[in-house]
């Protein structure tokens, strides 16, 4: 398993750092672990080949969720769509696209039983 040496090259290529929104630290160890566009320039820049994506996700789980993520997850559990949505099939029809069936909340709970329990707590 590749290990971080804190060289901070990941931070130097990070757009959040360039815009002055986060501290200068290894991306997966900084406080603002959610202030990330998931562009993964950090992962490309890492000379050690650290799986920064995975490390960031684990750091997020330790830190707890911002409200916007909580809302997105609740949407995911009820509709299977991560962003606010209107009538997607009406929109599809207007563009000559076939209808899709969205998964039911029962089906979604089967896919994400632990997430459902976690959000309910």
């Amino acid at each position: 398993m590749a290990e971080c040496t804190s060289c901070c090259r990941c931070s130097e290529v990070c757009i959040a750092f360039k815009l002055g929104a986060v501290e200068h630290a290894p991306v997966h160890r900084r406080r603002e672990v959610f202030t990330c566009t998931a562009c993964w320039r950090c992962a490309r820049a890492c000379p050690e080949g650290v799986d920064i994506y995975r490390e960031c996700m684990l750091a997020r789980r330790r830190q707890g969720l911002p409200e916007s993520y909580r809302r997105a997850l609740l949407r995911l559990l009820s509709s299977g769509i991560a962003v606010p949505a209107g009538d997607v099939n009406a929109l599809r029809e207007m563009h000559g696209l076939g209808k899709v069936r969205l998964l039911s909340s029962g089906e979604l709970k089967k896919l994400l039983p632990g997430v459902e329990r976690q959000l309910r707590r």
Binding site: F34, A38, M57, R60, R61, L65, Y69, A72, L73, L76, G80, I81, A82, V88, V100, R101, L102, L103, L108, L111, L112, G114, V115, Q118
Partner: peptide, 14 residues
């Protein structure tokens, strides 16, 4: 049938 890929949301929690 459509469902989200899980995006960055689900990996951030589970």
């Amino acid at each position: 049938r459509f469902v989200c890929c899980s995006s960055v949301f689900v990996p951030s929690v589970s």
